[in-house]
Simulated scan of single mutants.
Amino acid sequence: MDRLTATLAVLDYAAVAVFGATGALAAARRQHDIVTFGFFAAITGVGGGTLRDLLIGAPVFWVGRPAYIIVCLSAAAAVWILGPRRFRGHTLTWLDALGMAAYAVVGALKALSWHVPPFSAVVMGVLTATFGGVIRDVLAHEPSVLLQRQLYVTPALAGAAAFVVLSLVGMPTIPAGVAGFGIALTIRAGAILWNWSLPGFGGPTDAGG
């Protein structure tokens, strides 16, 4: 395994683990049992990547490599063992931001590797980064991340687009991925800390994105 492949594999597993932890934390808020913890972690961790692979015609990534599900279940077990006192109120939000930024790049890269056109690769990055969180919120009966005023889709879009554009102009994959990740995380962090939003239809106060 070369350095690039190894780095991408680590990033992919890390994103799955982080998203899996957010799923388990959502289950913790509802005081569910350990089995539900695992289910929430798995569906959140692999949901976005599953949709991406189905859309681009690739084998669903976790079916042949069950280690991804094991990573999700391990994240759920960690949340269960550590208990709610170890996780402050914004833990889920920040973990979700990290997972979103990583998956925006990973999703776009996977699409490009399957010769998906650049514009569609950006869309795949956004879907990979956001769909797992949408499923998590629906299952947990939480307000969807897509309906909040803070920027959420926009950071994923910016990160995926930056990665694809930098790749097209010849930047090596790892620096391009780091740049895309950094852009997505920076914008999302600004939204969390300072409530960044885009003007919404009908006036500046009806914002979202």
Rank of each mutant, 00 (worst) to 15 (best):
residue 192 I to S: 03
residue 161 A to M: 04
residue 151 L to E: 07
residue 70 I to Q: 07
residue 77 A to D: 13
residue 185 L to R: 05
residue 195 N to T: 12
residue 139 L to Y: 08
residue 120 S to P: 10
residue 43 I to E: 11
residue 28 A to C: 08
residue 17 A to G: 10
residue 190 G to E: 05
residue 21 A to K: 00
residue 22 T to R: 03
residue 57 G to P: 09
residue 117 P to N: 06
residue 70 I to Y: 08
residue 66 P to I: 11
residue 155 P to Y: 04
residue 161 A to K: 00
residue 110 K to M: 13
residue 103 Y to W: 11
residue 63 V to T: 06
residue 45 G to L: 01
residue 89 G to D: 15
residue 59 P to G: 05
residue 180 G to I: 03
residue 129 A to C: 02
residue 152 Y to S: 08
residue 138 V to T: 14
residue 142 E to I: 04
residue 114 W to N: 15
residue 20 G to A: 03
residue 76 A to R: 09
residue 159 G to C: 04
residue 115 H to C: 09
residue 79 V to I: 14
residue 65 R to P: 04
residue 174 I to L: 03
residue 132 G to R: 05
residue 126 V to S: 10
residue 58 A to M: 00
residue 209 G to C: 04
residue 138 V to F: 04
residue 37 F to H: 09
residue 156 A to L: 04
residue 88 R to H: 13
residue 118 P to E: 10
residue 119 F to P: 13
residue 125 G to P: 05
residue 111 A to G: 08
residue 162 A to S: 14
residue 144 S to Y: 00
residue 67 A to D: 14
residue 184 A to M: 05
residue 112 L to A: 12
residue 182 G to E: 00
residue 71 V to M: 06
residue 67 A to Q: 13
residue 149 R to F: 09
residue 189 A to Y: 11
residue 188 R to C: 04
residue 106 V to G: 02
residue 174 I to Y: 01
residue 178 V to F: 01
residue 107 G to S: 10
residue 116 V to I: 15
residue 5 T to N: 07
residue 54 L to T: 14
residue 137 D to A: 03
residue 160 A to G: 04
residue 43 I to Q: 09
residue 192 I to L: 07
residue 36 T to D: 12
residue 10 V to Q: 06
residue 185 L to I: 14
residue 170 G to L: 05
residue 118 P to R: 06
residue 49 G to D: 05
residue 103 Y to E: 10
residue 170 G to C: 03
residue 169 V to N: 08
residue 57 G to W: 00
residue 149 R to N: 13
residue 88 R to K: 11
residue 87 F to M: 02
residue 203 G to L: 01
residue 88 R to M: 06
residue 95 L to S: 08
residue 190 G to T: 04
residue 157 L to V: 08
residue 209 G to M: 07
residue 101 A to P: 10
residue 82 L to W: 10
residue 72 C to Q: 08
residue 17 A to K: 05
residue 4 L to D: 15
residue 76 A to H: 10
residue 6 A to C: 07
residue 201 F to I: 12
residue 106 V to Q: 02
residue 30 R to V: 14
residue 86 R to F: 12
residue 103 Y to H: 09
residue 94 W to A: 05
residue 125 G to K: 01
residue 64 G to Q: 02
residue 139 L to K: 10
residue 21 A to I: 06
residue 187 I to R: 02
residue 10 V to S: 09
residue 178 V to K: 01
residue 88 R to C: 08
residue 66 P to K: 06
residue 180 G to T: 03
residue 174 I to N: 00
residue 24 A to E: 05
residue 29 R to N: 11
residue 138 V to I: 14
residue 148 Q to E: 12
residue 188 R to P: 10
residue 125 G to H: 02
residue 92 L to G: 11
residue 44 T to Y: 00
residue 141 H to Y: 11
residue 176 A to T: 08
residue 112 L to I: 09
residue 76 A to G: 13
residue 207 A to R: 14
